[in-house]
Computed example of a mutant assay.
Amino acid sequence: MRLATFNILHGRSLVDREVDLDRYARAVADLDADVLALQEVDRDQPRSHGADLTAIAADAMGAPHHRFAATLTGLPGVWTGATGDHQPNAASYGVALLSRYPVTSWSVLKLPALRGRVPVVFPGRRRLNMVLDEPRVALVAVVEAPGGPMTVVSTHLTFIPGWGPVQLRRLVYRLADLPRPAVLMGDLNLVGSRPAQVTGWHTLAEGLTFPVADPNRQLDHILADGPLRPTSDSLSIDTGVSDHRALVVEVEQY
Rank of each mutant, 00 (worst) to 15 (best):
D133G: 08
N129W: 11
A90G: 03
T80N: 09
F122C: 12
L111M: 05
P135H: 01
V95C: 13
H86L: 14
L97F: 02
G94F: 01
P46W: 07
G124Q: 01
M61R: 04
G74L: 00
A37P: 15
Q87N: 03
M130Y: 15
K110Y: 02
R47H: 13
G50W: 13
V78Y: 09
V103C: 05
A113H: 13
A90Y: 00
P64Y: 09
R47P: 11
P135S: 01
A96E: 03
P102C: 15
G116D: 06
T71F: 00
A37C: 12
I56R: 08
V121S: 06
A113I: 15
V121R: 12
L53F: 15
P46C: 13
G62T: 10
G74R: 01
V118H: 06
R125P: 05
V108Y: 02
A57I: 12
E40T: 14
S105A: 12
A91K: 02
A37Q: 14
V120W: 11
L128M: 11
Y93G: 08
R67S: 11
F68A: 01
R115I: 11
P64L: 10
G77V: 13
F68R: 04
L53Y: 15
P112S: 08
S48I: 11
G116E: 03
W106R: 04
G50L: 14
P119T: 03
N129H: 15
Y93R: 02
M61V: 13
L98D: 02
M130Q: 15
L128D: 07
S92F: 00
A57S: 10
P46S: 11
S92H: 00
V41L: 07
G116W: 13
S105E: 14
T71A: 09
M61F: 06
A37S: 05
V78S: 15
R117G: 12
I56Q: 02
A90V: 13
T73K: 11
L75N: 03
S99T: 03
G84M: 01
L114Y: 02
Q39V: 06
